[in-house]
Computed example of a mutant assay.
Amino acid sequence: MHYIRINFIAKEQDVNHLAGKCIRILHGVYHRQKINNIAIAFPEWSCSSPGDSIVFVSPDKDSLQILAEQNYYLKMQELGYFNISNVRQSPSDSDYCLFIRNQRIEKYSPSGLKRILHRSKKRAESRGEIYRPIHQSIDVNWGDVHLIPISSGSSNQEFKLYIERLPKTAQPGDNQIATSYGLSNQSSKQFYVPLSF
Rank of each mutant, 00 (worst) to 15 (best):
S196C: 05
R115E: 12
K122T: 15
P133L: 01
K34D: 15
I9S: 10
D62L: 03
I150F: 02
N156K: 03
D93L: 03
Y96T: 04
H2G: 10
L166K: 11
A178G: 15
F191D: 10
G51Q: 05
K107N: 13
D93S: 11
H27M: 02
P43R: 01
H27Q: 12
Q136P: 06
E69G: 07
Q186G: 14
S63L: 02
E69P: 06
N141A: 12
E78D: 04
W45Y: 01
S48R: 08
D139F: 13
K107L: 13
K61D: 10
S49Y: 00
N86I: 06
Y192T: 10
I177V: 06
Q171K: 08
Q171W: 00
L161N: 12
N156Q: 08
P59I: 00
Q89Y: 01
L64N: 11
N71L: 01
S137G: 09
S137D: 15
K61M: 10
R5H: 09
G182Q: 07
S184P: 14
R119D: 14
L183F: 04
S53N: 07
F8W: 01
I40W: 03
I4F: 01
L26Q: 15
G112Q: 06
K11R: 01
N71C: 03
D93A: 11
F99Y: 05
L67R: 12
C22N: 14
L64P: 09
Q157T: 15
N71R: 11
R101Q: 09
Q77Y: 08
F99Q: 03
S58I: 02
G182N: 05
A19Q: 09
E78N: 04
R127C: 11
S111F: 00
